[in-house]
Design a protein around this nucleic acid. Structure first.
Lengths: 202, 202
DNA sequence: ACAAATTGTAAGTGTACACTTACAAATCGA
DNA sequence: TCGATTTGTAAGTGTACACTTACAATTTGT
């Protein structure tokens, strides 16, 4: 039955798009990775584009599940949870292929459907992060300085950090050490106002 | 003569890649935009890839020239200069097609030459920004708090901010207003430690 | 057990693309 | 002015790709 096949095949399709990008992920290549013939894929989706849209959705859901799990494991919410997610991202960043697919999708963003799918995904992503920032700020309960960015804006900034981190993995710009610092030092600075509490004049 | 032609044609090629991305920018489409036949392009460059590499270089140089000009206009260096560049980026962001080409290149990063060209470009970009951050920090001459990111790290963070800003332009994620704040509030926070000097308890 | 729907295999089809060839028109160097 | 090089035009070529068709092998419902 179709739905069973989709469950087995979709992850492989998604990985294919993540590895190869949209254009290089030919239907033949995708089929081979799945161990089926091309027409089998076309029985599950009407076109390559539809396969890609399904892949975006799948990868997004996978990423989300991982984060949710991290959140639920670290006694409910809070600073600790955020730290765990950041640590996880610093280490396993890009493992799900989320950003690879985003990069692939960006060059196909002239297509309204693909742009829409990416937008939807990225906005959920943003909302999720902004919520975490909110939680942390409520807990630390310091009054925010004037002109300190809203958690909304901060979340976009954090997404930006993730973008360079992933570009680094793609292009080898700086390396794992600095990538880690990006997720800890810079992220801290954006999230809580008192990251600079121990101000020493050396 | 060839070199004259390159001067006229290369900007159009670059714009073509920026508009269409690597794969969709077919040699036929590029030729038409330049008002010449395909084989004329192949008399200037041996392959499409070589055209793309030339385009990367051209766009990078154009961007650099703009920034240098801004710097030289605003009485030497300093906070003012940085503010001007940030303001310029907030307004004209993506006009040169720099980021579009980066996005296009990222999906072709499996090719060692293209990856190399992007890496080189991005590293120069980073060096330039890091230098500006350095200058500003020296001028404000406040002792940096412990664990405050180095100007090097900060520069990567700022590049990340630019990335989301450009993704926004591509996908319409948030809009011009927040894009502006990204370049002012968030950037300020990363560059100087005392962005939160007027801490008011509302 | 047997017709009907589903799955697997293999071979196309049309087209779009990177890149080439052939050759006429113009330009240039002497 | 004339041979040689450069420039412009037009028409290919081979191939890789999205997508299809035909049909045999299975599975399924009754």
């Amino acid at each position: 039955m179709a739905s069973g096949d989709v469950k087995r095949i979709l992850p492989l399709i998604a990985q294919g798009f993540a590895d190869l990008g949209y254009r290089r992920a030919t239907t033949a290549a995708l089929a081979e990775r799945c161990g089926v013939r091309e027409n089998v894929l076309y029985r599950l989706w009407p076109s390559k584009k539809e396969m890609f849209l399904a892949a975006i959705d799948f990868i997004w859901q996978s990423s989300m599940e991982i984060w949710q799990e991290i959140l639920s494991k670290s006694g409910a919410t809070g600073d600790e949870a955020a730290r765990l997610i950041l640590e996880y991202e610093a280490k396993h960043h890009g493992e799900t292929g989320l950003y690879k697919v985003i990069f692939a999708g960006l060059t196909e963003a002239h297509d309204a459907q693909i742009a829409g799918a990416l937008r939807k995904m990225y906005r959920s992503f943003h909302t999720f992060i902004a919520e975490q920032v909110e939680v942390i700020r409520r807990e630390t309960s310091k009054t925010l300085p004037a002109k300190f960015p809203t958690s909304d804006l901060t979340a976009w900034g954090l997404l930006g950090i993730s973008m360079v981190a992933n570009m680094d993995m793609e292009l080898k710009l700086f390396g794992a050490r600095e990538r880690g610092l990006l997720f800890t030092q810079i992220a801290q600075l954006l999230i809580v106002p008192n990251a600079q509490r121990d101000s020493k004049s050396d």
